[in-house]
């Protein structure tokens, strides 16, 4: 293993060891997605029964939306919480004086985020199939493209949260729970962008998630994957990721100038 890969593995191992030792943390990973799936599953069933089956497509988009939005939420939480664990354990000083490069730290957090998505969302997908006979994989190959875009959206939002923690200290970590959740109305998870007031539609269109969910609804409605939506989602993700990386680099440099790296958890 190269020195760089070993350093990345070292940080991943640190978090895996933590989860292995903490069942509440493990339980917490799946709790949110399973809870959301249960609530929206029964809601979808209610809508379906009340409409005599006429709103089957709507019910399916509810469930697909819940499951895929959890990918973004867990991706973001998995990344930013890994950083916050270091802050809370007052361990950042040791990490930053080790040979671990900042980009290696971020790479470790990306892997941890993907693992968190797998552990958190897979049980909810299984539950949707068992309880409601809902098969997310009916989305076909498009699912992978939608999934990856939501994963990446979670990453750049998390990178923004980490940058804010570097700037404002541990208190800004609260954004980890709120920022993406607060974007839900604009992400068009459960309804098309067209439902939003005209003034808010540009906000939605600036978010990759809104294009992902427009694509999901199209595929679930029987259309082929609308590649334009996917292209928009991918392009926006690249642009937002570039901005988030630039913000992180700026805030990391500023934190070194301000002497904030040692006292970030204080």
């Amino acid at each position: 293993m190269s020195p760089s890969a070993r350093r990345i593995w070292g940080l991943i191992y640190r978090h895996l060891a933590l989860y292995r030792r903490s069942w509440p943390r493990l339980l917490d990973l799946a709790y949110g997605p399973v809870l959301q799936m249960t609530i929206w599953g029964f809601t979808a069933r209610y809508v379906l029964n009340g409409s005599g089956g006429a709103l089957a497509g709507t019910a399916a988009t509810f469930l697909g939306g819940v499951l895929l939005w959890e990918v973004a939420l867990h991706s973001q939480m998995g990344f930013s919480m890994s950083f916050l664990e270091e802050v809370w354990s007052r361990n950042l000083g040791h990490v930053f004086v080790s040979p671990l490069r900042p980009w290696e730290m971020l790479a470790a957090f990306l892997v941890l985020s993907a693992l968190r998505v797998a552990v958190g969302v897979v049980p909810a997908i299984a539950l949707a199939w068992l309880l409601y006979a809902y098969d997310l994989f009916l989305l076909g190959p498009a699912l992978l493209a939608l999934f990856v875009n939501l994963l990446v959206m979670g990453w750049w939002v998390a990178l923004g949260v980490v940058a804010m923690v570097l700037r404002h200290g541990a208190g800004a970590g609260a954004l980890s729970w709120t920022i993406l959740f607060g974007l839900t109305p604009f992400a068009a998870v459960f309804y098309p962008i067209a439902v939003l007031p005209a003034a808010l539609r540009p906000v939605a269109r600036a978010l990759p998630a809104a294009h992902v969910f427009e694509g999901m609804r199209a595929v679930l409605g029987g259309a082929t994957m609308p590649w334009a939506e996917l292209a928009w989602a991918t392009g926006l993700n690249l642009a937002w990721m570039a901005a988030a990386v630039a913000l992180f680099v700026f805030e990391f440099r500023t934190a070194r100038i301000r002497g904030a790296l040692l006292v970030i958890g204080e």
Binding site: W9, G10, Y13, A17, L18, N91, G93, S98
Partner: peptide, 24 residues
Amino acid sequence: SPYVALPYRLTVAENLRVYGHLYS
């Protein structure tokens, strides 16, 4: 430094392993 801690939920061996990897 007494003002910078090691992850307190990890065992001694796990902590040494983490830093052993970070320093290759």
